[in-house]
Simulated assay, not measured.
Amino acid sequence: MLRVHFTVADLVRTRVSDGADPLWETVLSLHRLQDKSPDPALAVWRHPGDGARQGPLEMLLPLVPRRGYFPDFLTPAAGAAGIEHGLEALMSTPRTRLRDELTVLGGRNPLPSWVRSLADGEPTALRRLARAVGTYYDRTLGPNWARIKGRAHTDRALRLQALWHGGAEAMLRTYGPAMRWRSPVLEVAYPVERDLHLDGRGLLLVPSCFARSPVALADAALPPTLVYPTRARSADDAACTYKGLAPLLGPTRAAVLQALSGAPTTTELARRAGVSLSSASEHAAVLRGAGLVSSVRQSNAVRHALTPLGSALLREVRP
């Protein structure tokens, strides 16, 4: 178990990432690629004999074992600003950090001989690694990035609603069962026993479509980061939720409630639910009065988002 220890200052500084991080998604998708049944978006990389595909994997898979430790330098904080910024930061990793982290990795897994030049910080080796990461991202995550980003934004909206309405502790309670808030400690299901003291630095929570379970940076001296699996809903789940809500709310209002993921504007809500603009506004007002929806004006638009109660209703309703 990982125990994350908070102070009052840490709760104030705890935040949710703006969205999916391309380098974290790259590394965690490499974990999933090694599963027996990977995400369909990754299946193209499982066919042997294609040198264009196998080249990047020959370099990346030894650094990202299916289970356990992988180097923190593969997921620099700069990656949150985009894949290009992340790759630049990766190529600028200090030699001492490369050597230390690859030594830890080599103590747990056999490594190919070329890793020695990477541990020595040779610019050519770092460029080759960045090129392998970039190629894998461009061919796999890049074409699916809109879907990945959309899932992360939907999940983030859920967390922020809890934050706005109840504060950081209320938000931390939304991550169960793998992450349980027992003030002042967040208990995280983890393969090793570990304590992480935030010491006033706060915690960055990063949603991930490819994370199997929560994962944190190994080096406690780095900015505290915890990546967690997004709460995904399949088309079958959505259909079941609609069937369960329709008798309670009526078919139109149920459709409006279900269309509220990602804090849409009234215009976007009307389009998603297939109703007129005035009807969307009216139904949103009724749902807001019931405590299921909150609405905030931004410039000339009004954005609507699920409250924790509305999110809980969508999660729990079944036919």
Rank of each mutant, 00 (worst) to 15 (best):
L245W: 10
R272Y: 12
S183Q: 07
T252V: 12
Q161L: 05
S117A: 05
P308F: 11
G310C: 04
T135L: 03
G55E: 15
S299Q: 14
L203A: 11
L172M: 05
A78M: 09
A146Y: 07
R46F: 00
D39L: 08
A312Y: 14
P76H: 00
P65Y: 14
P110H: 07
T241G: 12
P22K: 01
L269N: 06
L126T: 02
A220Y: 01
L292Q: 11
P308E: 07
V206W: 12
Y136V: 05
G134V: 01
T174N: 03
N109L: 07
D138N: 08
A280G: 05
M171G: 03
R139G: 11
R95S: 04
V192S: 03
P76A: 01
E122F: 03
R3C: 01
R147W: 10
G200H: 11
G167S: 02
G166W: 14
P264F: 03
G200L: 09
A290E: 15
A152G: 09
T267F: 11
R67C: 05
P71C: 05
R201G: 05
L203G: 12
V302N: 00
M91Q: 14
W45M: 08
L313R: 05
R151L: 15
P65A: 05
P264N: 01
W45T: 02
T103G: 15
E88C: 08
G51V: 07
A259F: 13
A52C: 06
R66H: 09
S117W: 13
A81C: 01
A146H: 09
E25D: 14
S92G: 08
R180G: 01
A255F: 10
S117G: 02
A280P: 12
D155I: 00
K149W: 15
G289H: 10
P177N: 04
A221E: 14
Y136A: 07
A305K: 06
Q34T: 04
M91E: 14
T96C: 04
G82K: 02
L57P: 13
E187Y: 09
A238W: 13
L217I: 08
T26V: 10
V104G: 01
H47E: 14
L226S: 06
V185E: 15
A218N: 14
W164S: 04
A81T: 04
R32Y: 03
L98K: 02
V206S: 10
G262E: 01
G134I: 03
L196R: 06
L198E: 12
L260Q: 05
A301K: 12
L248A: 08
R13T: 02
G51Y: 10
A80T: 10
L287V: 03
L126M: 13
Y228V: 13
M59H: 13
P247S: 09
L204F: 08
P71H: 02
K243Y: 12
S281H: 11
P229E: 09
R297F: 07
V115E: 14
V227A: 02
E282I: 00
P38D: 11
A132V: 03
G55K: 11
T241I: 09
